[in-house]
Simulated assay, not measured.
Amino acid sequence: MAKRRPEDPPKGAPAWQSTFSDLMNLLLCFFVLLFSMSTVDAEKFQLVIASLSSSMSILPAGGASIGDGDMVGAGVNQLEFLDKYYNDLANSKSHTESTTEGTDANAQEQYEQMELSESEQMAQDIEKQLDNSSLKDMVDVDFTSEYVQLSLNGALLFESGKSEIMQEAYPVVNKISTILATYQDNLIEIEGHTDNVPVSARSKYESNDVLSMYRALSVADYVRANTSLDPSHIKSSGRGDYDPVADNSTAEGRARNRRVEIKVYNSYNSDFN
């Protein structure tokens, strides 16, 4: 008699159910872990807050203000002190700025006074040398905080309408050159000036500007050639009739305007660039 084949055992759960069960278990463990980590000792938490607030807050209430729930009230109580703090800070800044401005103004005033004092001393020395050279009545001396100015009447140096120094004027220019030679480290600027009468149509100079420029250049070249001064320390320029010192409507005024000015700059203003 044939044997009966045993029945197959029942099949297990589908494969996806096993995977899903594993995922659910992992999620459960994850949320349990989060819950366990979120449980904080309230007393320790208050101590941490108090420590941080007392060390970092600008309000003197510190940890008590947070622990007692009075932070807002305590902060409002401190507003008047904050206002005073910022007002004091603003006043301090304003005072510092005004002090700095006052210091700068005083420094500038002292600097200008030193400039003026040096120019005054230079003018006194030059006048003394002019007295010794018998040129006091031929040269006018003036000074500013920048330079000492020597003014010579153009009629002493040049013939009318010409820029070459007259031979009769050589002794005067020689004495002036000797005085200038004592200022080896100073900038010297020579300016030529004319009256407002137009140059003659037969003149080789097309305008008073050109004539004044050549007259200044003649004096500058003479000083360079007869002194040991550094040639680069001597500048020359023509001002024409743009800077009169007297009224051109009179003969006396026009004579004063026809002049040569020599400016010897003090050490504070001797810029050779």
Rank of each mutant, 00 (worst) to 15 (best):
S177C: 06
S177A: 15
I179S: 03
I179Q: 02
I179D: 03
I179L: 07
L180S: 00
L180W: 01
A181Q: 15
A181M: 12
A181P: 07
A181Y: 14
A181I: 10
A181N: 15
T182G: 10
T182M: 09
T182F: 09
T182D: 15
Y183G: 05
Y183F: 14
Q184Y: 11
Q184T: 15
Q184H: 14
Q184K: 15
D185I: 13
N186C: 14
N186P: 04
N186Y: 12
N186W: 06
I188F: 05
I188L: 13
I188H: 05
I188V: 11
E189D: 08
E189K: 09
I190V: 06
I190H: 01
E191H: 09
E191N: 10
E191C: 06
E191R: 06
G192K: 00
G192F: 01
G192D: 03
G192V: 03
H193N: 12
T194E: 12
T194S: 11
T194N: 04
D195I: 02
D195T: 03
D195V: 02
D195K: 05
N196C: 04
N196A: 14
V197G: 02
V197D: 10
V197F: 08
V197M: 10
P198N: 08
P198S: 10
V199M: 09
V199T: 14
V199W: 02
S200P: 02
S200L: 10
S200R: 03
A201K: 12
A201W: 13
A201D: 14
A201N: 12
R202N: 13
R202K: 15
S203P: 01
S203A: 05
S203V: 07
S203T: 07
K204Q: 09
K204G: 10
K204C: 04
K204D: 09
Y205E: 08
Y205S: 10
Y205N: 12
E206T: 14
E206H: 11
E206W: 07
E206K: 13
S207F: 07
S207I: 07
S207R: 06
S207T: 09
S207K: 04
S207Q: 08
N208A: 03
N208F: 08
D209G: 11
D209W: 06
V210G: 04
V210K: 13
V210E: 14
V210A: 14
L211C: 06
L211P: 00
L211T: 01
L211N: 03
S212E: 06
M213W: 08
M213D: 14
M213C: 10
M213T: 06
M213L: 15
M213G: 08
M213A: 14
Y214G: 00
Y214V: 06
R215M: 09
R215N: 04
A216M: 03
A216H: 09
A216D: 04
A216L: 03
A216S: 15
A216P: 08
L217A: 13
L217G: 08
L217R: 14
S218W: 03
S218G: 07
V219M: 09
V219L: 08
V219R: 00
A220H: 03
A220M: 08
A220C: 11
D221A: 04
V223S: 01
V223T: 00
